[in-house]
């Protein structure tokens, strides 16, 4: 095993080009477990800790450019207003110690369906900025996950940042685990309201081979909200609409039975979380709308 310590982003890209099998390591929260437990013996470890810019974020007009290694703790503490869904998801990641090290880049690189950031990214809308010596490109989050623990990265590419749409409406994130802290998701759900486009986006974790959106549920809800003039009148969403949305979210799952839970429970739980997060976000939206109306 070789340990590569690039001092700059360019050096990192060059190293990855030279050694496409090199495994990037930043927070180490996935890679080191695999090494400690002898599940993996990469030929090269590519340390990204010395590349300071990966820990930076920029808040732009419409989006946040989040460096791949920005730790979850920083997201929770600094980006709650801009990225509320991701901040909530970050807060559910493992433990304080892990949140101090791990970042979204690692979640994306590992592309485990159980990664906590995915549902929030899917719901908010995001693009993954990846780069190689060949050049840079931005992969829409919807195209990023390609299979179980597989993503759209080429062998010589590294994740540099994620561009996440700034919240313009309420966002929520829920995760079911069988412990009240420090738990891997049995399943998870993210939901974001996008009032300007009058759309709702969702993200589901751990209930399909990859993180997925519940597109049929989104389409149904978008139509129902539009039809009822809900975005304007700020009425309470009817229980039947919420139920059908929840059912469609559950139907979007393609889960398995494993040690963490059964497929049928996952489907059920995603439905419950969909209904609750819709209620929370919509209540919040109504509250905001009411305040704005009054002002």
């Amino acid at each position: 095993m070789d340990f590569l310590r690039p001092g700059s982003w360019e050096e990192a890209l060059a190293a990855k080009a030279e050694h496409p099998t090199a495994v990037p390591i930043a927070g180490g929260t996935d890679v080191m477990v695999e090494i400690n437990f002898d599940h993996r013996r990469p030929e090269y470890l590519l340390d990204l800790n010395r590349i300071g810019e990966l820990n930076d974020w920029e808040v732009g007009e419409d989006s946040v450019r989040l460096g791949a290694s920005v730790p979850y703790t920083s997201i929770m503490e600094n980006l709650r207003a801009e990225l509320p869904g991701l901040a909530l998801a970050s807060h559910t990641v493992a433990s304080p110690q892990i949140r101090n090290r791990g970042g979204v880049g690692g979640n994306l690189g590992t592309a485990s369906p159980a990664g906590d950031a995915h549902p929030a990214l899917l719901a908010a809308g995001a693009e993954v900025e990846v780069e190689s010596v060949r050049g840079s490109r931005r992969i829409p989050i919807d195209d990023f996950y390609t299979g179980v623990k597989r993503n759209a990265l080429a062998a010589d590419e590294l994740i540099r940042a994620v561009h996440i749409k700034k919240a313009e409406g309420p966002q929520q994130f829920s995760k079911v685990g069988t412990r009240n802290a420090m738990v891997i998701a049995v399943c998870a759900f993210g939901l974001a309201l996008h009032p300007s486009s009058r759309t709702v986006r969702t993200g589901i974790g751990s209930a399909a081979p990859t993180p997925v959106r519940a597109k049929a549920a989104e389409e149904f809800l978008n139509a129902a909200l539009e039809e009822g003039g809900f975005w304007d009148n700020g009425k309470i969403i009817t229980p039947s609409v919420a139920k059908q949305f929840a059912d469609l979210c559950a139907a979007a799952c393609n889960p398995i039975d494993d040690v963490r839970g059964t497929a049928s429970y996952r489907r059920h739980a995603v439905g419950i979380m969909a209904r609750r997060t819709l209620t929370w976000t919509w209540e919040s939206y109504r509250g905001t709308a009411a305040t704005e109306g009054a002002a």
């Binding site: 180490g28 929260t29 890679v31 080191m32 090494i35 470890l45 340390d47 304080p96 110690q97 090290r101």
Partner: peptide
């Protein structure tokens, strides 16, 4: 910063 030293290479 508190970290798990087992996960730091």
């Amino acid at each position: 910063v508190p970290v798990c030293s087992c996960l730091v290479a």
